[in-house]
């Protein structure tokens, strides 16, 4: 197990959403030589070419091959991580993933960078807004989206020691605000309450939207509105117990950089429905469309995913 002291944690927080991948896989592969990082012409972007040496495998711009190759590595007893940008490692290679993880049950680990809106200036082609929906429907898989670099580090480490298949969805860019300052006990399937200011509203968020939600809740607090923010970094399995325990709050909101169809909000709605909870749930995210190219900031603003917009939205909903 990695030891996370203050210095290490501070170092982790400077890595950014992609750099953290190379940072962790280098350390983990030195501990366990079965760990291999295969990447589809994005090795330099994730710090893998610089750090992985003999434990890295360049597969070229070929995400379908990437999944097939890491599946073959897994078949031979390695612990392979496949790394690419989120839309390409999920949708482009969906059939390979379906067969490898769903059918063969292979424990491959997938890391999708730049998920959500962060690559918005490149257009919808480069945005992953449907990856959760697609991956969540694959049997056996664990789908995670970290709230900050430290949680990402914990997830990568956990994926490397557990047998099963993983999809780790990384949102945000180089500057990732902190949610977690100290070492903590990370558990898959466990949601985490990161702000507890009252029970007027409960916010379910994942990825970068956890931070935006926490900031919005601080503003709402000044207006006398008490909110609870839950980091839903484990999207599958989902923390049903947590969702049920907060279902007596009159308004629930899900916030995600994903289509409101099939994402975190849908996963929360599944739980509420299965347990006959009548809690109102408002899903904030991309409203079933592919955006035109724009900056990350403009797109977040457009879909109500900034702390100011979340604040306004909740104020309006409560009126």
């Amino acid at each position: 197990m990695m030891h996370y002291d203050e210095k290490v944690i501070n170092g982790i927080h400077t890595q950014g959403s992609r750099g953290i991948v190379g940072f962790m896989l280098e350390k983990l592969s030195k501990q366990d030589p079965r760990i291999i990082a295969a990447y589809a012409d994005v090795g330099s972007r994730f710090g893998l070419i610089q750090k992985m040496n003999g434990s890295g495998l360049q597969v070229s711009i070929a995400e379908q091959s990437l999944i097939g190759i890491i599946s073959g590595l897994c078949h031979e007893g390695f612990i392979p991580f496949g790394v690419a940008y989120a839309p390409f490692i999920t949708m482009r290679a969906a059939d390979q993933i379906r067969m490898s993880i769903g059918e063969m049950g292979l424990g491959i680990k997938l890391i999708g960078g730049s998920a959500g809106l962060v690559s918005g200036n490149l257009g919808a082609a480069s945005m992953a807004l449907d990856d959760i929906a697609m991956m969540r429907a694959i049997p056996n898989i664990t789908v995670l989206s970290p709230a900050d670099c430290f949680e990402a580090a914990k997830m990568i480490e956990t994926a490397s020691v557990l047998d099963g298949p993983f999809y780790i969805r990384l949102t945000g860019g180089i500057n990732i605000p902190r949610i977690y300052y100290k070492d903590f006990d990370y558990r898959i399937g466990k949601a985490d309450i990161v702000a507890e200011e009252g029970r007027d509203v409960v916010i379910y968020a994942s990825g970068m939207q956890v931070y935006s939600s926490v900031k919005a809740v601080e503003m709402l607090k000044n207006d006398g509105i008490g909110c609870t923010v839950v980091n839903m970094s484990s999207i599958k399995p989902i923390d049903e117990k947590m969702i049920c325990s907060l279902s007596d709050i009159r308004l629930a909101i899900s916030i995600e950089e994903h289509n409101v169809i099939g994402g975190l909000g849908s996963a929360v709605a599944d739980v509420l429905a299965a347990h006959s909870k009548s809690q109102k749930l408002v899903k904030i995210g991309i409203i079933d469309e592919y955006p035109k190219p724009d900056t990350y900031e403009n797109l977040l603003n457009k879909y109500g995913l900034t702390s100011e917009k979340i604040y306004m939205n909740i104020k309006n909903l409560l009126q």
Binding site: G68, I69, S71, G72, H75, E76, D95, M99
Partner: peptide, 16 residues
């Protein structure tokens, strides 16, 4: 059963 997937898998095995 899903055609075209075996060779990449074989590449992974061969490299391993």
């Amino acid at each position: 059963g899903s055609l075209g997937q075996g060779l990449a898998y074989a590449v992974g095995i061969a490299w391993a």
